[in-house]
Simulated assay, not measured.
Amino acid sequence: MAKLSSLPQRLGPAVSKLKQAPRDEISRTRMRDATQPWRAWYKTERWRKLRLTILERDLFTCQQTGVMLIGKYPANDSPVVDHKVPHHGDPVLFWDERNLQAVAKGWHDATKQSLERRGLA
């Protein structure tokens, strides 16, 4: 009887490439965004105050799922302040309270990112 490790792979390397493709795309996007000057805006006191204002306005409730945002990062129910319309470095869109919403990290990292990658958000 042949050992399992000696049997040829039926699906081959194409399967591993399919599994890695989205992660490679995500990595490229993150690397590109990391070099953008607007990334520093997230580290300012102005952003921290605005973020708290939005979370309080939205009563620490995800505006997409209704989940209470009571978790501590990196929990799926931890709070994220999301730009409804991606700002792409536009300061007007970045700082506009009407363009911000409180959402759950789980929703933001899965659904919202998927929508953005497909150009639907």
Rank of each mutant, 00 (worst) to 15 (best):
G119I: 04
L100Q: 00
G12Q: 07
I26L: 15
L50P: 02
A75N: 08
P13D: 12
G66W: 06
D90K: 09
E25T: 14
R51L: 03
L11V: 09
D82L: 02
A102Y: 00
A21I: 04
H83S: 11
E25V: 15
Q64A: 07
A121Y: 05
M1V: 06
A110K: 10
S16K: 14
Q101T: 08
A14L: 11
A110P: 01
L52A: 07
Q9I: 02
A21W: 11
S114E: 11
D82W: 00
D96E: 14
K3T: 00
R28M: 11
G106R: 00
M31I: 13
S5I: 00
M31N: 15
S78N: 03
H88K: 15
Q64I: 03
E116N: 12
D109I: 00
R48L: 04
Q63Y: 03
D33F: 10
V85N: 14
A75K: 07
Y42L: 08
L50M: 15
K17G: 10
N99P: 12
M68F: 11
L120W: 11
L18D: 14
Q63L: 07
E25F: 10
D96G: 14
A21Y: 14
D33K: 09
D90F: 14
L120S: 09
A34Y: 10
F94K: 11
A75P: 00
W38G: 11
I70H: 09
N76S: 13
V103Q: 00
L120Y: 06
E116K: 12
A21E: 12
A121Q: 08
L18G: 15
V85W: 13
K43Q: 14
V92E: 15
E25D: 14
D82M: 03
A110S: 13
S27M: 15
D24K: 15
R30V: 12
E25H: 13
S114W: 06
S114Q: 10
D58W: 04
R98W: 09
T44P: 07
A75F: 05
Q20T: 08
Q20V: 04
Q101H: 09
M68W: 05
P37M: 05
K105W: 07
R51S: 07
W95C: 13
R32F: 14
H87T: 12
L4R: 06
W95L: 12
E97I: 08
K17A: 15
V81Q: 06
W107Q: 00
E45W: 06
L59T: 08
K84F: 14
K72L: 12
R10I: 10
D96T: 11
T29D: 15
V67T: 08
D96R: 12
K72I: 11
R46C: 06
K43Y: 08
A102T: 01
G66A: 03
M68N: 11
P86V: 10
P22H: 10
N76M: 05
G106V: 00
L50D: 02
L4K: 06
D77M: 01
Y73D: 05
D77Q: 04
G12D: 04
K105Q: 09
L115Q: 09
W107K: 00
A34F: 11
D82T: 05
Q113C: 05
H108F: 04
P74W: 06
L120R: 07
L120C: 08
A110M: 06
W47P: 01
L120E: 10
Q9V: 02
S114Y: 08
H87D: 13
V67Y: 01
L120V: 10
I54N: 01
